[in-house]
Measured scan of single mutants.
Amino acid sequence: TGTRRLSDLRVIDLRAELRKRNVDSSGNKSVLMERLKKAIEDEGGNPDEIEITSE
């Protein structure tokens, strides 16, 4: 578990975070980053400090 910047995430991490939020996880990295950023902002979170749970 740790905090990472949105830009540091790999595509696989972006998809996992989107799936956790029940958000569409298809598309390229830039699309996924925008989608995740919006989802985090909608939750009231900070997209520059994403809580990542290692699996």
Rank of each mutant, 00 (worst) to 15 (best):
residue 1 T to Q: 00
residue 1 T to F: 02
residue 2 G to I: 15
residue 2 G to M: 14
residue 2 G to H: 01
residue 2 G to A: 09
residue 3 T to M: 10
residue 3 T to N: 11
residue 3 T to P: 06
residue 3 T to V: 10
residue 3 T to S: 12
residue 3 T to H: 04
residue 3 T to E: 09
residue 4 R to M: 15
residue 4 R to A: 04
residue 4 R to G: 12
residue 4 R to Q: 10
residue 5 R to P: 03
residue 5 R to Q: 09
residue 6 L to H: 02
residue 6 L to F: 05
residue 6 L to Y: 04
residue 6 L to Q: 02
residue 7 S to N: 02
residue 7 S to T: 10
residue 7 S to C: 07
residue 7 S to P: 03
residue 7 S to I: 12
residue 8 D to R: 03
residue 8 D to E: 11
residue 8 D to W: 02
residue 9 L to N: 03
residue 9 L to F: 10
residue 9 L to I: 04
residue 9 L to Q: 03
residue 10 R to C: 05
residue 10 R to V: 08
residue 10 R to W: 02
residue 10 R to E: 11
residue 11 V to T: 13
residue 11 V to H: 05
residue 11 V to E: 05
residue 11 V to K: 11
residue 11 V to L: 15
residue 12 I to V: 13
residue 12 I to W: 11
residue 12 I to G: 15
residue 12 I to Y: 10
residue 12 I to M: 15
residue 13 D to G: 02
residue 13 D to K: 00
residue 13 D to A: 05
residue 13 D to Y: 00
residue 14 L to I: 08
residue 14 L to K: 00
residue 14 L to S: 00
residue 14 L to Q: 01
residue 14 L to D: 00
residue 14 L to E: 01
residue 14 L to P: 01
residue 15 R to E: 13
residue 15 R to T: 07
residue 16 A to T: 12
residue 16 A to K: 11
residue 16 A to M: 13
residue 16 A to R: 14
residue 16 A to Y: 12
residue 17 E to A: 09
residue 17 E to M: 13
residue 17 E to I: 04
residue 17 E to H: 01
residue 17 E to S: 02
residue 18 L to P: 00
residue 18 L to K: 00
residue 19 R to Q: 15
residue 19 R to W: 06
residue 19 R to M: 10
residue 19 R to C: 11
residue 21 R to C: 04
residue 21 R to Y: 04
residue 21 R to Q: 01
residue 22 N to I: 01
residue 22 N to A: 09
residue 23 V to Q: 05
residue 23 V to F: 12
residue 23 V to P: 01
residue 23 V to N: 06
residue 23 V to Y: 09
residue 24 D to R: 06
residue 24 D to V: 05
residue 24 D to W: 01
residue 24 D to T: 03
residue 25 S to Q: 12
residue 25 S to R: 06
residue 25 S to T: 07
residue 25 S to A: 11
residue 26 S to H: 09
residue 26 S to R: 13
residue 26 S to F: 05
residue 26 S to C: 10
residue 27 G to E: 01
residue 27 G to T: 00
residue 27 G to S: 01
residue 27 G to Q: 01
residue 27 G to A: 03
residue 28 N to Q: 08
residue 28 N to A: 12
residue 29 K to Y: 12
residue 29 K to M: 04
residue 29 K to D: 06
residue 29 K to F: 09
residue 30 S to K: 10
residue 30 S to H: 07
residue 30 S to P: 04
residue 30 S to W: 08
residue 31 V to G: 07
residue 31 V to P: 01
residue 31 V to S: 13
residue 31 V to K: 11
residue 31 V to H: 10
residue 33 M to R: 11
residue 33 M to T: 15
residue 33 M to I: 12
residue 34 E to S: 14
residue 34 E to F: 02
residue 34 E to V: 13
residue 34 E to T: 15
residue 34 E to H: 14
residue 35 R to F: 01
residue 35 R to E: 03
residue 35 R to P: 03
residue 35 R to S: 07
residue 35 R to Y: 02
residue 35 R to G: 04
residue 36 L to S: 03
residue 36 L to T: 05
residue 37 K to S: 12
residue 37 K to D: 05
residue 37 K to I: 06
residue 37 K to M: 09
residue 37 K to Y: 08
residue 37 K to F: 06
residue 38 K to C: 10
residue 38 K to L: 09
residue 38 K to S: 07
residue 39 A to W: 09
residue 39 A to E: 07
residue 40 I to F: 04
residue 40 I to Q: 03
residue 41 E to S: 12
residue 42 D to R: 12
residue 42 D to C: 09
residue 42 D to A: 12
residue 42 D to H: 06
residue 42 D to T: 09
residue 42 D to I: 09
residue 42 D to S: 12
residue 42 D to E: 12
residue 42 D to N: 13
residue 43 E to T: 07
residue 43 E to H: 06
residue 43 E to N: 06
residue 44 G to Q: 04
residue 44 G to N: 09
residue 45 G to K: 11
residue 45 G to S: 11
residue 45 G to D: 06
residue 45 G to E: 09
residue 46 N to T: 08
residue 46 N to R: 13
residue 47 P to A: 11
residue 47 P to E: 07
residue 47 P to D: 05
residue 47 P to R: 10
residue 47 P to W: 07
residue 47 P to T: 06
residue 48 D to M: 04
residue 48 D to R: 08
residue 48 D to A: 11
residue 48 D to Y: 05
residue 49 E to H: 02
residue 49 E to R: 15
residue 49 E to C: 12
residue 49 E to K: 10
residue 49 E to W: 13
residue 50 I to N: 10
residue 50 I to V: 14
residue 51 E to T: 11
residue 51 E to F: 12
residue 51 E to K: 07
residue 51 E to R: 15
residue 51 E to V: 15
residue 51 E to D: 06
residue 52 I to C: 11
residue 53 T to P: 10
residue 53 T to N: 12
residue 54 S to G: 14
residue 54 S to K: 10
residue 54 S to F: 09
residue 54 S to L: 14
residue 55 E to Q: 08
residue 55 E to V: 10
residue 55 E to N: 03
residue 55 E to T: 02
residue 55 E to G: 13
residue 55 E to F: 01
